[in-house]
Amino acid sequence: MVEKRGAGLWLTHVGMIIGVAFIFFPIWLAFVASTVEQQAIVRPPMPLLPGDKLVENYTRALTSGVNAPVATMLFNSAIMATGIAVGKIIISLLSAFAIVYFRFPGRQIFFWLIFVTLMLPVEVRIVPTYEVAANFGMLNSYSGLILPLIASATATFLFRQFFMTVPSELAEAARVDGARPMRFFFDILLPMSRTNIAALFVILFIFGWNQYLWPLLITTDPSMNTIVMGIKQMFPSGDDTADWPVIMATSLLAMIPPVIVVISMQRLFVRGLVDSEK
């Protein structure tokens, strides 16, 4: 490393701090707004330091919200994000196992059927997918929120890559030891994939939590709204003034779970992210 000293070092820190401030400022403002009265906001400029209405505003958001209690929306989001992460991981583990460890008729075709979906997000085929979900009676249901978003190949691709790096001898040793395929899968492959599974869980949880367009279409009943899409629903139509403290409290509540997941599992997450995009 060509180390920086003196003024250069300080400039570097100043640059980083400006960057961090740029990242933090919008969130700080939202936090301040969620701790003051509506009055403090509608008469600009709003204060830049927190007020004393934190408990009140958050309680109001969680218990009554605007259209639906935010607690309900948080619950819906948790179900959706967990469902998507777990569902994707399960079907991906199984199909990657089949593709890597077996030779069966149609393997190549299935392989390509899965992998052409690699980069096509739900937004592209939104209208017909909505019709399919509607035909299955999945509107305003958890299965409608979860199932269509499970159809993606990223996780399958990651597990396939990982399984390829597991030495063939391990499977052969297990075979000689008397393990049938599923026994090998549960006893050897699954425990060896633990870190990959955990890292992927973080990424998929955030992916699921942050979905916007799909829940917007599929849930018309406010009690089925997820929190990320529910925030927009809190803005009044027309010229009425928005209930900013509650909206900002909701925004913070919407980012807390995924942020906690990211920070607490930072190492896993960074590894998983870099791996899954390779």
């Binding site: 990242i23 919008p26 969130i27 403002l29 939202a30 955030i206 939590w209 942050n210 916007y212 990320v228 899409m229 925030i231 927009k232 909206i247 925004s251 919407a254 980012m255 995924p258 942020v259 997941v261 990211v262 920070i263 930072q266 960074v270």
Partner: peptide
């Protein structure tokens, strides 16, 4: 690192 976890829609609101 953590704004990665903030949904685009929430970023929009902020």
């Amino acid at each position: 690192i953590w704004p990665y976890a903030v949904a685009p829609a929430v970023a929009g609101v902020l």
